[in-house]
Each structure stands twice: as structure tokens, then as C-alpha cells.
């Protein structure tokens, strides 16, 4: 499957050193784009692909974001894939944990956008894609900050689209369903939990990081120039059935 050509485009991917983020970097690079991956840990990216450059950056530090993107010239695509999850019951949830989750997941999305909007190349439609989560729509015990930050991202996508359309920039999102990464290990490593969870997904399996590449390329290409303010759920149908009858124990701490 190769129909989308992003040759000549430059993309910035926050969280590009993470599992989903890195898969997205590779997808963009395979489509021909030059990719700058921002992350606090860059070992997955370093030296892995000629078209992907890593820039070390702590995305919870807004001043750090400015300096990290200083040397990046004109861009065509911004992908915000940075995300952290800290789970705890509501009565035990620490303020520091709340702030960390919101700083990385939501605040950095806005300030990266603020920093990079002036760098978007003139003459073609710019593309901003935030990686949200189906947890913006489905609740999970313990994931208070995570789900709220992702809900915030969905609202921010809509809001930015109203202002950035005039600058010829489309803003959209992808809401991955439960994806097999380190973050969800507790769920898919437990065979019983895993099969019970997969039984609630119409397509019968959790997502692989690579499943999110197709929707990303669509939203980063001229195929979607009239699509803005939207979030595409890439979840094997989980949100369309609203995870009916899912046992809450299966959701706990395992988005």
C-alpha cells in the first residue's frame, strides 16, 4: 500500500522516540518526508533512519520546546504524539502527577503549535495532527489525568482548527484504541485480561502501532484538505460499540 507521497515535506513529531510516535515517524519517512523527532529519550530514533533526525527535548518544559525547535526551518506537518500516563485512584492522585500528565499531553501540544505555526511553509495546506485517545470518550478507572488531558486535546483540535484555517492549516486528530505498547503491557501480557478485552473490540484485536500510520498519512496529505477539526478513531470499532458490557476491571490502569 503506497499511494501517498510526502516527498519534499518536513514533519516535526513530538514524542517521536516513543513506540507509537516512532512508528509514525517511520511511516512519514517511508512516504518520503523528512522527519524531526522530539523526545526526552531518543535512543529508538538515533541512527535508525536517514530521513529521521532526533532532537532531545523535555516536552514538559515549555522553554525547552522553544530551544528544541530553534534550528528547524520551514515545516509542513506537525504531529503531537508525546503522551504519558500516570494512574491512581482519585483519593490518592498526586498534584505532581496531574501536572506532569497535563504538561506533556496537552500543554506541550498547544505551545508546540504556538512555536511552529509561523514556520509552516506558505503555498500549500499545512497539517497538524494530535494523537488523542479513545479514552477521551470512554472512561477508565484511575486514568483521571490521562483521559481529561486527551479530552482537552480533542477540544483543542476543534478550537485551533477555527483559527488556523485562515492560515491554510488543517488541524485534526487520531484517537488510537488500545495499542500494544509498554504503556498497556499490564493488559496484553495477562492472557485472560487480554482476551476478555479483545472480545469487546469488533475487529477482535488490539491495535499495533503501525495501524495508526494509514490514518496519519491521510491526515498529513492533500487527500484531507477539506477535513479539519476532526478526530479519527483508529480502534477496530471499539468506540462505535462504546465498549458495551466491558468489565471495568479490564480497563483499570490499562488504557
Amino acid at each position: 500500500m503506497k499511494t501517498i507521497d510526502l516527498t519534499g515535506k518536513t514533519a516535526v513529531v513530538s514524542g517521536g522516540g516513543g513506540e507509537i510516535g516512532y512508528a509514525l515517524c517511520v511511516g512519514l519517512a517511508d512516504a518520503g518526508a523528512k522527519v524531526v523527532a522530539l523526545d526526552i529519550k531518543t535512543d529508538r530514533v538515533d541512527g535508525s533512519n536517514d530521513r529521521i533526525t532526533a532532537v532531545r527535548s523535555d516536552l514538559s518544559d515549555i522553554a525547552g520546546i522553544s530551544s528544541a525547535v530553534e534550528d528547524i526551518g520551514e515545516i509542513d506537518i506537525l504531529v503531537h504524539a508525546a503522551g504519558v500516563n500516570i494512574a491512581a485512584p482519585v483519593t490518592e492522585f498526586e498534584e505532581q502527577a496531574w501536572d506532569t500528565v497535563f504538561d506533556v499531553n496537552l500543554k506541550s501540544a498547544f505551545f508546540l503549535t504556538k512555536e511552529l505555526v509561523p514556520r509552516f511553509r506558505a503555498g500549500c495546506t499545512g497539517k497538524i495532527v494530535f494523537i488523542s485517545s479513545i479514552s477521551a470518550r470512554l472512561g477508565y478507572p484511575g486514568l483521571h489525568a490521562y483521559t481529561a488531558s486527551k479530552g482537552g486535546l480533542d477540544a483543542l483540535i476543534r478550537n485551533l482548527s477555527t483559527e488556523l484555517g485562515a492560515k491554510n492549516i488543517c488541524v485534526n486528530g487520531i484517537a488510537p484504541g488500545t495499542t500494544k505498547t509498554g504503556m498497556t503491557k499490564g493488559l496484553w501480557e495477562d492472557e485472560k485480561k487480554c482476551s476478555a478485552h479483545e472480545a469487546t473490540i469488533p475487529m477482535g484485536r488490539m491495535a499495533d502501532c503501525k495501524d495508526h500510520v494509514g490514518p496519519l498519512l491521510f491526515l498529513c496529505s492533500d487527500m484531507s484538505d477539506y477535513v479539519t477539526g476532526q478526530v479519527v478513531c483508529c480502534d477496530g470499532g471499539l468506540t462505535s460499540v462504546q465498549a458495551d458490557f466491558i468489565n471495568l476491571n479490564l480497563r483499570e490502569g490499562n488504557e
Binding site: 500500500m1 499495533d208 495508526h212 494509514g214 483508529c234 470499532g237 468506540t239 460499540v241
Partner: peptide, 10 residues
């Protein structure tokens, strides 16, 4: 197309 291979019900 297969570009949306894990997207359904959307």
C-alpha cells in the same frame, strides 16, 4: 482502502 485497515464504525 487498506489505509484505514484498523478503522471501523467511524
Amino acid at each position: 482502502s487498506d489505509q484505514s485497515s484498523f478503522v471501523t464504525g467511524a
